[in-house]
Nucleic acid binder design. Structure first.
Lengths: 327, 327
DNA sequence: CTGAAAGCGCTTACAG
DNA sequence: CTGAAAGCGCTTACAG
């Protein structure tokens, strides 16, 4: 049977309130402090979380909302968050929403009901419903991977990513390019990443770029790529994610188009796998795990009432590998 | 301000206990039932989880312990668990242990402290410390992916997987084979999968098989493969996981060994990516997501005191693709 | 520094 | 079917 604070108090010969004070770092005389400490050690006493939360109306739990679990970006970010939160003595709770926006909203309210201290939100899109939920719950929220003017956020420098990639492929001599992007509903990938790329292209006089759109799924990217490669082929395809890039490569292989000799391909993300495939993929590295750690730090500061800059931007890094031919 | 059960009771003109009974499915007259229902709807009342758990000494949370987050098997399984648990009105809590055994043990105790109703354990190895923890906490535990005679478990048919793969490659005419496995500390992959393969080989008269060991990491597989391919090359390498198989392919590519013409390669797992790489990988499909759903069902039954068969085995399925040459 | 008492929001016998 | 009361294990003013 687990001991309660009353048991400990009795055995230490003090009042419950004194034990409670000790537990919460209040002032206790050296003498009683030792007595209590000894008894707690001896019986391996651990306070009941529910009783504590019921009374204190808060917890040391940080809720993390993720759109999916089976993505490199998500799992890396989660691992970073988890690791850092552990250091800070917070617990991480994960809610997976399977890309269902309503579940995202529900998850926010659910977390509030469970009295989490803070919420880290990995969402592709911030709608009014999100804003309302965040407003309603009165709990610190940190956005990761997306930004919103009225919310604390931590983002990757998508614009820069698009720009350096654009610059790179132009430098490599490519002029006939296809940019295979995703819906603009995704602010970070759909808009900023593309904008950055367009900035680079704007600085090129004789570049011819066609824009296509696909989804984040590799299988759909394959289909879109079929379409692109069936007509007049560009010298290079800039895919908006590594996943999409792999879909493109797949299609190229099945059509016996050799990469990079006949077609160059690039991605974004630097997933582990991109270094293992053949040819290795030129991409832009995103520091997901570091983003997770930073996010954990920021949310804990927010929870503890410290101020945190509204927007933090993480640098990205071009990784030049074999999938781009020098023309 | 959130309403409490007392508020609702007062507004409905009944006692708190009556509201509580209603909430918990006890018998209430049709009349009071309607009154209470209306008030609850109107104020959007939700019972406080802490108060409930404090009193009832249990929760509707299932804790899941995973060794890592960045693995195909893990994420697919988690998604299955999550989806089914949601249906069953349980909540899923995830504890990531980053392959640290001590953290695995700690996580079990932590979950117990939080009064989870049941625990799903994805672990590579079951030690005495695990057994002791499980014994100590007095909470239903379900093993997924590994088995132990004294614990409820849900496993993939690793022996069968190894066997069908062995049979398949023999049928394709391969006789000079390397089996690239992992440590026997991992019961499922290290032992059963290999044993199944060996059973198939035992039925082959003129098969020559060499056994090597590597880790689950693709990067280490690359190194081990360097070693193997440097000496006298087999006609085929059976890698113990898809990840390892991709490491082998990587090495082969970098040495300009063409697959499958000069070297055939197979894996286990059927990760999404195996269908997208070139050549596509012959592998054995594991039903991770289904395993997760079943696991959720089983743990809920265990929690509710129903009996569940001690060991459930999921079938696997050979997926024959391009990476194996017919000799 | 320390203790007695009230209360957090629920559930659970026990009467009626 | 319904209600009054006790209690789950803590924390928090309030006195002393």
């Amino acid at each position: 049977m687990n001991k309660t604070i009353a048991d400990i108090a009795q055995m230490a010969g003090v009042a419950k309130s004194t034990v409670s004070r000790f537990l919460n770092g209040g002032s206790v005389s050296e003498n009683t402090r030792q007595k209590i400490e000894r008894i707690i050690k001896q019986y391996n006493y651990v306070p009941n979380t529910f009783a504590r939360s019921l009374k204190a109306k808060k917890t040391s739990i940080i809720g993390t909302v993720v759109p999916r679990l089976d993505s490199y970006a998500t799992s890396q970010t989660l691992m970073g968050i988890d690791e850092e939160l552990r250091q800070l003595h917070y617990q991480m709770l994960i809610a997976n929403t399977s890309q269902d926006m309503q579940r995202e909203i529900d998850a926010i309210y659910d977390f509030a009901r469970q009295k989490v201290s803070g919420i880290i939100l990995l969402a592709a899109e911030i709608t009014d419903a999100h804003l309302k939920a965040i407003e309603d719950i009165q709990i610190p929220v940190l956005l990761v991977g997306q930004q919103h003017e009225s919310l604390h956020s931590l983002i990757h420098h998508d614009d820069q990513a698009g720009y350096v990639m654009g610059k790179h492929v132009i430098e490599q001599g490519h002029r006939d390019i296809v940019y295979l992007g995703v819906s603009e509903k995704d602010q970070a990938v759909g808009i900023h990443r593309k904008r950055g790329f367009q900035r680079a292209i704007a600085e090129c006089n004789d570049c011819n770029v066609r824009y296509y759109e696909t989804s984040f799924k590799m299988s759909e990217a394959v289909v879109t790529a079929e379409n692109i490669l069936g007509k007049n082929m560009p010298t290079l395809i800039v895919a908006a994610t590594d996943n999409i890039a792999m879909g493109v490569m797949k299609t190229a292989f099945s059509r016996s188009i050799s990469i990079p000799q006949q077609l160059s391909v690039t991605g974004f993300g630097d997933y582990d796998i991109t270094e293992m495939i053949h040819p290795t993929l030129t991409t832009v590295k995103y520091h997901y795990s570091q983003a997770g750690k930073l996010a954990a730090g920021h949310i804990s500061q927010l929870v503890e009432g410290q101020s945190v800059r509204l927007k933090t931007i993480l640098d990205v890094e071009l990784i030049s590998r074999e999938s781009v031919d020098k023309l």
